[in-house]
Design a protein around this nucleic acid. Sequence first.
DNA 1: TCTTAAAGGGTTTTT
DNA 2: CCCTTTAAGA
Length: 748
Amino acid sequence: MSSSADLTPNQMQAVDHFRGPLLVLAGPGSGKTRVITRRIARLIERGVNPREILAITFTNKAADEMGERVKELVPQGRVWVSTFHRFCARLLRSRAEIVGLGANFSIFDTTDQRQLLREVLRDLNIDAVHFSPNKVAHRISNAKNNLQSAADVARSFDDAVGNHLDAVVSRVYPVYQRRLMESNAVDFDDLLLHVVKLLSENPELRHSLDERYRYVLVDEYQDTNPAQYRIVAALSQDFPNLCVTGDPDQSIYGWRGARIDNILRFESDYPSAVVVRLEENFRSTQQILKTADSLIAHNVLRKQKRLVTDNPDGEPVELVVYRDGEHEADEIARDMRRQVEAGERAWSDFGILYRVNALSREIEFALLRHRVPYQIASGVEFYERAEIKDTLAYLKLISNPADRIAFLRVVNTPRRGIGKTSIAKLVDWAERSGVSLVEAAGRVSEIPGLPKKAGASLKKFAELIADCRQAIDEPVDSQLARVLERTGYLKQWQGSDSEQDQQRLANVQELRTAAQQFDDARADEATLEGFLETVSLVSSGDNLDNSAGCVTLMTLHAAKGLEFPVVYLVGLEHNLIPHERALRTEDNRELEEERRLLFVGITRAQDRLFLTQTQSRNFRGRRLTTIPSEFVSELKIKWSERTESDWPTDTDFESNDSGDIDDWGADNSSAPSRLRRTKPPSDRAETPAKRSGFSAGMLVRHPQYGIGTVIRVSGPARKQTVTVGFEDAQEAKTFVSDHCPLQPVGTR
DNA sequence: TCTTAAAGGGTTTTT
DNA sequence: CCCTTTAAGA
């Protein structure tokens, strides 16, 4: 089955290694994923029970893809491939009671966490302006990443005289943690932490899990944090058939607690470890590799490593300087269009990478103007929307009535005439009676001083939740439908002409589609908590579609593990990469992580790599003159400066402004870039070309929803809306045509 | 109680 | 620039 003809000797060695610890140091593009997949297949061929194999990847998408590929190689091999967080969530569900949780615990996302912290800060009379929930949350997360409990933090604060924020954190952390437990909830860090606790305090359980997962594979090991390190170690004690893969030069998550040391000390952790180096690169041209190599060589805290390839020399890497962000974005869009129209490339060949999400906006606008189809990595964005959070809060409350954050979110949403003061009374009474908020709401008659109307509403609310709980074993979508029906949640927007309201309806519908898909995929195992878990743990690139036929936009972090024939790496500027925050610390390690991040970006490219920077950039509403990134001087590349003088002035462009958009691609003399004196992008979008851009029957692509057909175009010229039916959605969605990310697509 | 308006504050990267 | 939180009015 798994022939070895297509593997190098080193790859073969890693694939063929059977028992005992294995470290695979894999440079970028060295076929690491293929090696892991093949190795899993090989283990199964050798008679290892697939159940005994646990593979940990960095994103859900990577996990799904790896699972698929293993199944292709070994059809009967159903291996558990998962992210750390998902693995821990599943494990914790089955042993929740050991750590004092219920099996139906909620997973708090950052918003929930902030909300809870806000509450705690208020209760402790801590000034939330000076000590923002955000800052405190970060500090607590840091502590948790370092396996520090609330008691540990308090102790270390006693030992050393901490600063003000630490003093606050040492008070807040224990209360925050207690409230989490009272809500039967965990935050992201807790998922790992509880499992660490579970494993370290229950030797017999640890042993049985170690035995159950005899073969553990961890990808991107350089990005594991202390908690993850402990979990892996605990599962590889009695059966140390642990295979970790990674590349110290691609360690880019130090800021969230990852320890590059974990991979560096693997050999001393496991003295019998076999080490395999994959240094041959199959991805990039020599030019690209040379660029990457010259950059990463500047890192001092680093093990020397070779990057070699038999690939062609390729075109030189280019650094292009543009006037400003809009110029940069427009030229990239135009450049891509030219290549696609010349038949040299497909849209999906392009990746556009940036250091900070904020840079995506200008690029998106440009891609819209130039009718370039694109998708953007944005896992969480959808689930952050108020209407989605509200809807999910109902489901969370049904699943876990102790969830106070969910309760507080929806108790008066939609409006039930339950005001702040009533809620305060309820919360107070519940606190003193030691019951959940839902239970308190069901016992309003016992609460003194509650207005009649509010009391009645609360009672009804409690009954609603109780009724829905009766049906908790139904398919998730049925439960969702019931919630929407019984709460009348959608009524507030139905029949509204407002585009925003229609969008909200569409989003909720989208959530229903997700629920239906979950029901279908999991069949009998489709539990409500499982669904909530799935949506809580989406990761950044999960929404990307390899076969979407469009350009892909994402951060450098999200790009790890991916590759593109052509990469545009934008914003190579001082304070952007390296980011100003890394520059401020004077900590060389942070600067080196920035360098690694750029290294990751560069090594995503297969054939062509364009690095771009601007002379000035709009930032926080201000136009700032930029300074080139210090990393640029470390690269061996060709400069191709297209500065102001090479381009027509904005007045030249102004006269051409109302021209048809399609001319832009053909007419090279009309620079699309312009200075801020001219009209802002939102005005520009209202050119006749754009307004008439959609017509009924047209095929379009949306970065989130996929391919759809335009059903209707309506509304006054300036606020024209377009209604689109998508393949995967039940109902049509409506967009404002001037601002929507819809791309016309030819045929499909 | 709820809606609307103004001001203020914060921004890396993500599970 | 964008989002959130807060203040004033209906």
